[in-house]
Write a protein that binds this DNA or RNA. Structure first.
Lengths: 170, 170
DNA sequence: GGCTCTGAGTTCGTCAAGTGAACTCAGAGC
DNA sequence: GCTCTGAGTTCACTTGACGAACTCAGAGCC
């Protein structure tokens, strides 16, 4: 099983920490399948065509990290087996998977939208990710955002100095 | 340089395709730095502590994929060098990086919010990712979304059959 | 003109991670 | 007793990452 360490620089932001959990090969594809409803080892393996050894490792890592839980079940005329279900912590990775999907749909497909469409369960309208602020403005992208760094151990933020925030290289 | 192929299953959704571009080790951390304003080889290398060989490969892959452009510049008393700037295609990966950051802030940090805060440039309010639908509803998460598969080559969608969508395993 | 300094790589030996194929193991059914 | 199946584990091989050393081009200094 993959051991999650602090070796990556987490001091600047949490991206590296999250990648320590979901950044290995196949991890995010396993999650994609989980979000599509897949729960069983054999189904993950069939859909992804990943080697059993790696799948075993990725599932075990997710269980260890609290992203999936291992739940016993007993199917018709079969012995007891386990299935893997998303926890709340795992469900909260949904935006990450959607972000990857939206980018792929925009830049890698045929321009017709990707093979999977997401709809609001209540109203049926297409669903997308949006950058919003707490004053309820809808932002256009990275240029509308200013990043500030909070020094370790304090509750205060200061502006980034050496690294200009994204607007400076428009 | 990494060669991007179609070998990963793109038929089910675009996640695998996007991961073919940004899924290798260090790729998303290079992008994180780019979004913080880093442009030069030596700065990426210093901030990430990644080996030069890998950094060279990741930057070259991004340039080849149109995520970064290589722009010559001439600094004070230095010979001409190149810097790497985000293209529109690259800037559109911002939600992916923010999604990773938000999850890390929520589950890996001290609960005080992560080391980097994002604010709306216009109004200063905190910025976050949200799932929204075209009827302007704000969704809570994966359970509010229904995924439908569009068969290859058609413009129509049908409901997923074998793999139940996420609400079925609440 | 020779020497050094620096940014931006490239090369290389070593080690970790992923791959496909073969092997294991436990229970259900015949 | 024999076979079947899901879920792994083991193994030989290949690919990818690592750190250290080497290269290369131009600027500045003497």
């Amino acid at each position: 099983m993959a051991v999650i360490t602090n070796e990556m620089d987490r001091s600047r932001c949490s991206v590296a920490g999250t990648l320590a959990v979901v950044g290995e090969k196949w991890s995010l594809l396993v999650l994609r399948e989980a979000f599509l409803g897949v729960r069983r080892f054999a189904d993950f393996q069939r859909n992804l065509e990943v080697s059993r050894a790696v799948l075993t490792d990725r599932l075990a890592t997710f269980v260890e990290q609290g992203v999936l839980t291992r739940v016993p079940y007993h199917a018709d005329g079969q012995r007891e087996r386990h299935e893997y279900r998303l926890t709340t912590k795992g469900l909260d990775l949904y935006p990450t998977v959607v972000a990857l999907m939206e980018w792929g749909d925009r830049y890698l497909g045929d321009g017709q939208g990707g093979p999977i469409a997401l709809q609001h369960r209540d109203c049926g309208a297409p669903v997308r990710l949006a950058l919003v602020c707490d004053d309820d403005h809808r932002l256009d992208g990275a240029y509308d955002v200013e990043a500030t760094v909070r020094p370790r151990g304090t509750g205060r933020y200061r502006a980034i100095e050496k690294a200009p925030s994204s607007h400076t290289h428009r």
